[in-house]
Design a protein around this nucleic acid. Structure first.
Length: 262
DNA sequence: TAGATTGTTACCGT
DNA sequence: CACGGTAACAATCT
């Protein structure tokens, strides 16, 4: 579920914990702790100190204290709970109830409130001072020049366009659904080599990308794209009716329209 | 029931 | 070194 749009919503929710001193750290599922973070380390670093900021870099949420950052990654099914409010879109992923058994990590605050990582599938991770240097520029504030740099190739045709959009070290925040939606809207085939794009196409991709992110934010998230309903075998292009092709690009299932994506 | 899944990382091969 | 392909991870849903 969480791509950049969802994590940005988590960040907004997490602003609600700024200024509140951490009273207790609970880790019902230590599996969620990313090396070398430990429960004892979290307690030592966080307890007694208030957060001063909620940040986001791509799909990584960061809660800063003076001198230390708490990083949260949400994997495929992670969600954030603050004071019993869950910041996920129930339209698409709607567990009947928020299962207490799926709370993997929780902070209690001195005022009695809490912040929790809710994650049925357990791909989410918690880490102190996560390495942000391996992330490219955040897609929500990406300039046209940033995109050109992200698509740049040393030699040869370069990787498939979609694979590059999914490469978090080049460009942080785009996931599988957003990548398909953006390329569909930009009339670009997902397997186009990066180096084959001309300046006009790069500019179009940048414009469509920003527009798509803004529009899907309005609609409620990554899963609200025009392509979503047709993302199944036999689905048709909402624009021209062509049967969509299902392939694998960049290791991920890809739906695209051979009728208008070139 | 078999198959698919919105993310990340490691590893192998070219 | 860059990149593709694959598997692994884990659990749930269609």
């Amino acid at each position: 579920m969480p791509e950049v749009l969802e994590v940005e919503r988590y960040r907004e929710l997490a602003e609600g914990v700024v200024g509140r001193p951490v009273a207790k750290v609970v880790v019902p599922d230590p599996h969620c702790l990313a090396d070398p973070t430990t429960q004892a380390g979290l307690r030592r670093a966080l307890v007694g100190v208030p957060f001063e900021r909620a940040r986001r870099h791509g799909k990584l949420l960061l809660l800063d204290q003076p001198g230390v950052s708490l990083g949260l990654r949400f994997g495929m099914t992670g969600g954030l709970l603050v004071d019993e409010e869950l910041a996920i879109d129930r339209l698409i992923y709607a567990p009947a109830e928020i299962g207490e058994q799926w709370i993997r990590f929780r902070l209690y605050f001195a005022d009695g409130g809490q912040l929790s990582l809710h994650d049925p599938r357990r791909f989410g991770r918690v880490q102190l001072d996560p390495d942000e240097s391996r992330l490219g520029p955040d897609v929500l504030s990406l300039t046209e020049g940033d995109l050109r740099t992200a698509l740049a190739v040393r030699a040869g045709p370069g990787p498939a366009l979609k694979a590059r959009l999914l490469d978090q070290s080049k460009l942080a925040g785009v996931g599988n659904l957003l990548a398909d939606e953006i390329l569909w809207r930009a009339d670009l085939a997902p397997d186009r080599p990066c180096a084959s794009l001309d300046r006009t196409e790069e500019r179009r991709l940048h414009r469509v990308m920003q527009r798509t992110l803004a529009e899907l934010t309005e609609r409620g998230g990554s899963h609200m794209g025009d392509l979503m309903d047709e993302r199944h075998p036999g689905g048709h292009c909402p624009r021209d009716g062509t049967e969509l092709v299902r392939t694998v690009v960049g290791g991920r299932t890809t739906f695209w329209c051979p009728g208008h994506q070139r």
